[in-house]
Amino acid sequence: MKSYKEIKAIQMRTVIMLAILAGLAIVTVMIKSTVVSALGLPQVQESLKNSSLGKTLASEISRIANDFSYYSYSQWFGKTYMQIAALAAIVLSFPLFSKEREKRTIYLLIGRMGRWEIYSTKVLIGYVAVLITIFGGGIAYILTANIMGYALPSTMAFAWTFRIMVGTLLLYQIGAYTSLLFKSQVKPFLLDIAIYIGLGISGFFKQTKFLDLFGYMGGKTVLKNPTIGIFPTIIVLLICAVIFTLGYLQFRSMDIC
């Protein structure tokens, strides 16, 4: 099986990212009561009243305390889950090509496999790893919430999980592409972080709002309207396909030296 090597290469990183994500999911549910009681302390309430931002913060806090869906959005799906998912996208993608070229192990593959075989096994195995990792994190949160007896509409939870899976695929695909561009591993890693920050910032401006991938992934709109957002989902997947194709064309015409 030609994908054996790629599975071996990515399995450790997948397991680690999955463990981190699932662990944080469980912790996030578990500490809910602690967080809420800490925010409810008289001292905290007092200082909130005295600040100008206090009123909005106070209402935010009461929402977090009373509405588990909102807590899930603000502490997990719109926050930690998405951040770790982005991290997982980088971790799973940056060495794909760059490591083989840096370490010169690519010559084991070149000539023994065609370019399409090399490219597709590498990138597609990563897709599977991303889906497993992100799905695992989402499920861990949903299950823990269920066991702890919190009310979390499952359509909502699954809508977020689905969006973040799709979004992370795109982040991963971007990472797979940057991995092609360099012979060293550090450069794609740094470039990925820069691109993700850029995507995050673009959400704050009207003109670049359409680039707000994180807005789609951990969107607040899901609170009101728990759907997967078919239109943006299709767009994101299309962009994935475009980058995947561009990456292949690039890899196909590349000198391996």
């Binding site: 099986m1 054996y4 071996k8 010169r104 010559y107 070149i110 000539g111 023994r112 065609g114 075989e117």
Partner: peptide, 30 residues
């Protein structure tokens, strides 16, 4: 490439993270 060619490059780089039998298994897979 052409499938019926076997190449030994100047740098004899193999996958550092495995033991020899696993390396053989990996090589055999492709």
């Amino acid at each position: 490439g052409v499938k019926k060619v076997s190449f030994v490059p100047e740098e004899k780089s193999l996958y550092e993270w495995v033991k020899i039998p696993e390396m053989v298994k990996i090589f055999a897979s492709f």
